[in-house]
Design a binder for these strands. Structure first.
Lengths: 350, 350
DNA sequence: CATGCGGCGGAGAGCGCTCTCCGGCCTTCG
DNA sequence: CGAAGGCCGGAGAGCGCTCTCCGCCGCATG
């Protein structure tokens, strides 16, 4: 562990630039950071010296004094136990959702020169290690995507005083900033669409009951249905995975063979549901209309193309980044939540 | 930019621990890093002092002297222009492949306490900025996934003397370490499978001709077919995306309506191909057998389930991490390549 | 008993940067 | 014409850590 880099051609330092430009270190620093008025002529000279020497500031040195790293942690907090439907660690990341979050974050982070450091919290140990890690001040803040029910991380992080923003409402009420979509309103869009199509025997495949998204979508859907006189909507819980959706759809068809419309709480499950419907000879949307949630890539990969409630994941992630950067700039800032609107993307399945 | 953190309760430093334990800074450092023999009794005392004070080493300070960051860059280098089939930045990341690489890397990186910093190089400017960035010594090495044809980054990185490992063979010969699969052997598996099934009018949807993977899979497939007396295999170039696969499949069916077996150079395209085949009333595998490549999540999301050539992406990524860490430990090391075997995953489509 | 040597703790010099403080100069105003 | 104030560059003190060097001590060896 004591390996230092071979001496080699040492990187130029501020000192070198200063000497080359015939000014003091402080002045070079000021020019490089644009931090105070510096005589234009001197500025030019310094710029040239920087070019000539090929100087790049050393981040560690800068961080040591500013206590700023210009890095944030992008943490995915996931359940410790793999479920039947999701046996692999890899699965967490093979969900396209993951990539969309990253993409959205980067649109905001890159122009500001902030780098995301990827971290995975998949056990209670990992969560604590992570907090210790973050206390090493090698990160300015945390963008947390938690899909672990009853996750302790939001709490641990706020407790540690780390600027944190969540993707999606925390499952227990905690004073913490987050971005989310209007889940219930989204579910309502789905309900209205199904009703407008003339569906009368409507059922739903819900997300896990221990996830806020699962709860909200189900609640929103039921409420909207109730408003239209449908007092009761049969539902089956699924695990937000494709095979979970298949299993749920089978169960639903068994108990409610006359189903003519299904709201499925996410696209992955909806994709599974479509497979089962086809397998059982039901035409979609003629016999059974299907609406998903997310508008993920699965929605366009499925046949028929999935009508779904669009969640603007990239925009949400971008906003998460903005909130986080603001919070880092001023930690005393009030916590905030930003709720995004959903839209119904009408394709073929409903 | 001049925001310092409010003073607050300062983090304990080595100095604090040393004082509390009644020893010198150096000794505490030695205990914390396990770097030299220290009297067991003193070791114990120091440990306790560390616990008592809640000390965590400051990474920036450590990095400043060791020139080690314990972070690597995970760089995705992608084409500047979006293609018709892939118009969005987000798409790069919504490919499940991305997540699988991350998952594999983490299995090796985490136990070693190394963090991946996510970076995206999507333009020539971005690539140069990235190199400058890396020269700030805020990263020990680079794991590069390049899907940009003729990418300059592998060259720029080696030139800059940064420890680098590629995922997949570089498109131009460059002295650089990489991991890859035996693409041609994989394509051969597909060929043999199709032939064994009795397919006689075999065609293929190739990947982009300017990507090594695209070339190799096509070459390997053709060679294997030739070995079995099939001198010529009609092929259409696709873009490695689902709609690219659809387009290619349509074209293929138009020119070669008697096709009874198709090797598709990746699963995403194969998924598109399956849709087109169904749409045109061809049964899979009875009328047309289809084999994909990758064994990505798309293979299991499609119906019929896709028979495909498995690429052990997670294992490859893990090996990439191992190679990189070794290279970082000893930069004078010879460059190496590790080639993984493919296997045929037999499902329903062939 | 003198000498050598290995083991182990302490002292202190940086790593490269930022930032406060100071002082010189120029401008401005009484 | 003198004092006050503003602007801008330089000096220098750290930030928290590692690591080399030094010196002490205890033991083995001649």
């Amino acid at each position: 562990m004591t390996s230092s880099r071979p001496p080699g051609p040492r990187q130029p330092t501020l000192e070198d630039v200063a000497r080359s430009a015939g000014v003091s270190r402080a002045t070079v620093s000021r020019v490089v950071n644009g931090t105070r008025n510096v005589d234009p002529e001197i500025q030019r000279i310094v710029q040239e010296a920087v070019e000539a020497t090929g100087y790049v500031p050393n981040r560690a040195a800068r961080t040591l004094v500013t206590r700023r790293t210009d890095s944030i942690a992008l943490v995915f907090s996931v359940p410790a136990h793999r479920t039947r439907d999701d046996p692999f660690l890899g699965q967490v990341f093979s969900d396209p959702f993951f990539g969309r979050v990253v993409g959205g974050l980067l649109t905001v982070l890159r122009p500001r020169g902030v780098h995301p450091v990827l971290m995975l919290a998949d056990s209670e140990d990992a969560r604590h290690a992570l907090v210790a890690n973050l206390r090493q001040e090698h990160i300015d803040g945390v963008a947390l995507v938690s899909i672990a029910p009853g996750d302790s991380l939001p709490f641990l992080l706020t407790e540690a005083g780390l600027p944190t923003v969540l993707f999606a409402r925390p499952s227990t009420a905690i004073p913490i900033s987050y971005v989310d979509v209007a889940q219930q309103a989204g579910a309502k869009l789905a309900a209205e669409r199904l009703l407008a199509r003339g569906c009368r025997r409507i059922t739903t495949i819900a997300g896990p009951f221990d996830s806020p998204a699962g709860q909200d979508r189900l609640a929103g859907f039921r409420e909207a249905m109730a408003e239209h006189g449908h007092a009761y909507v049969p539902s089956v819980e699924g695990s937000f995975t494709q095979v979970g959706g298949e299993r749920a759809m089978r169960e639903l068809l068994e108990c409610h063979p006359d189903t003519d419309g299904v709201f499925v709480a996410n696209d992955l499950m909806a994709q599974g549901a479509l497979h089962v419907l086809r397998e059982q000879g039901r035409r979609v949307p003629e016999d059974v209309a299907v609406i998903g949630f997310d508008d993920s890539s699965a929605a366009q990969a499925s046949r028929p193309l999935l009508t779904t409630v669009r969640q603007p994941v990239e925009d949400m992630a971008a906003e998460m980044a903005r909130l986080l950067l603001a919070l880092i700039d001023d930690p005393s800032q009030d916590i905030r939540s930003v709720i995004f609107k959903t839209t119904l993307v009408e394709r073929e399945s409903a």
